Simulated scan of single mutants.
Amino acid sequence: MCGRFALTASPEELLELFGLLKVEDFPQRFNIAPTQPILIIVASERAEPGSNLPDRRALLVRWGFTPGWVKDPRTFPLLINARSETATDKAAFRAAMRHRRILVPASGFYEWHRPPKGSGEASQAYWVRPKKGGIVAFAGLIETWSSADGSEVDTAAILTTGANRAIRHIHDRMPVVIPPEESSRWLDCRTREPRDIADLLVPPPEDFFEAIPVSDRVNNVANVGPDLQDEVAPMASISARRTPAEDGQRDNGQLTLF
């Protein structure tokens, strides 16, 4: 899953990387948590074929997807992630998969290895970042929820997939990463149906991310400094938990601003 992430890029970097017309100034954020506003990128409804204007725009939305048919969000589960394997079939995400796909820029994400109770192992937080640095784009979905009084809230979820071997020893899920060369295809909800972009809903290459053990201070949403990403000695070593087949191969608190 993806329960915390960071975005420390400058607006100028995002403008260049995603081909945006403008991005409002915003601070570096080292501990983005559910229900907080997150920066997302959508295809511009005003873009016309052959136009020289940028065809993407950036928005701030609430991290926590609320389907339009929900009557009272207070009684509905907080959907921060959507399983990519089943999102097209789920009532909560079906329409958004067809009509409202987005990109979620990130510098990386946090994940926790939580061993079974009684195992004697301690939980360990990890900062998972691209080995080569830079910004990644998570696949996401957006939905605008309207209340009875006419007010609206834009909400979003991050799509996840099965973890690759580099991350699987920490957690069995990870965010879907959309490569830069595929971002236009992912955002194209006019001509691309979910079956046309299903091949993008896969884990990134094994060597794409690196996992850095960090302190449990990231658990507290009030901690927001860059020191959250400082490497620490792991509290307990963890095995890769390889399958027999893999062994054979080897032997061969949240804040709300809405």
Rank of each mutant, 00 (worst) to 15 (best):
E48D: 06
S151P: 06
R74H: 10
P27F: 01
G3I: 01
A245E: 15
V23H: 04
F93A: 06
V218D: 00
R190C: 09
A211L: 05
G19S: 00
V202D: 00
I197P: 05
G162T: 10
A240M: 08
V104T: 02
A240W: 09
N31Y: 01
N219H: 07
S146D: 01
G19E: 00
D55L: 09
A92I: 00
D207K: 03
A87R: 08
Y126D: 12
K132F: 13
L159W: 12
H113G: 08
F30D: 02
S84Q: 10
P77A: 10
L103K: 11
F258S: 12
A125M: 14
L159Y: 06
I80Q: 03
W112L: 03
R217G: 11
I238R: 15
A240N: 06
S10P: 05
N219E: 04
T243R: 02
A122S: 13
E24A: 14
D196W: 07
E246Y: 08
L159T: 09
L15E: 06
I41F: 06
L257E: 15
A125Q: 10
D25L: 13
R57L: 14
T144H: 11
F18R: 00
R29P: 00
S183D: 03
R100W: 06
A137Q: 02
L255I: 13
R46S: 13
V218G: 01
S147L: 03
I38E: 00
G3K: 06
P67G: 10
L59C: 10
P203E: 08
D216W: 06
W69D: 02
W186I: 01
T155F: 14
R57D: 12
P11R: 04
E45S: 15
P244D: 05
R56L: 11
P54V: 01
R56K: 10
L228W: 02
T256C: 07
D154P: 09
P226A: 04
R173K: 08
S107D: 07
W112C: 00
L14C: 04
S183K: 11
E143K: 15
L103R: 02
R74S: 09
P49I: 03
D230G: 04
S123C: 05
P67C: 01
S151H: 08
T144D: 15
G253T: 08
P67K: 09
G118R: 11
I167E: 03
P204N: 11
A6C: 10
T161I: 09
A91V: 07
T66W: 02
A122M: 13
L78A: 02
K132Q: 12
V218F: 05
T88H: 14
G248L: 06
E24Y: 11
E193L: 12
E206Y: 05
V70R: 00
R185T: 12
H171T: 03
G140R: 11
A240S: 11
D154S: 13
W186T: 00
V232N: 04
T160N: 08
E111M: 05
A211C: 04
A139P: 06
F76L: 03
E182M: 12
L20C: 01
A166R: 15
E152T: 15
K117G: 11
S123M: 14
D154N: 09
K71G: 00
P194W: 07
V214L: 00
E111D: 11
V70S: 03
T86S: 07
E13R: 07
K132A: 15
H169Y: 07
R100N: 12
V218A: 01
V104R: 02
A6N: 04
V70G: 09
L103H: 10
P34T: 07
R129D: 08
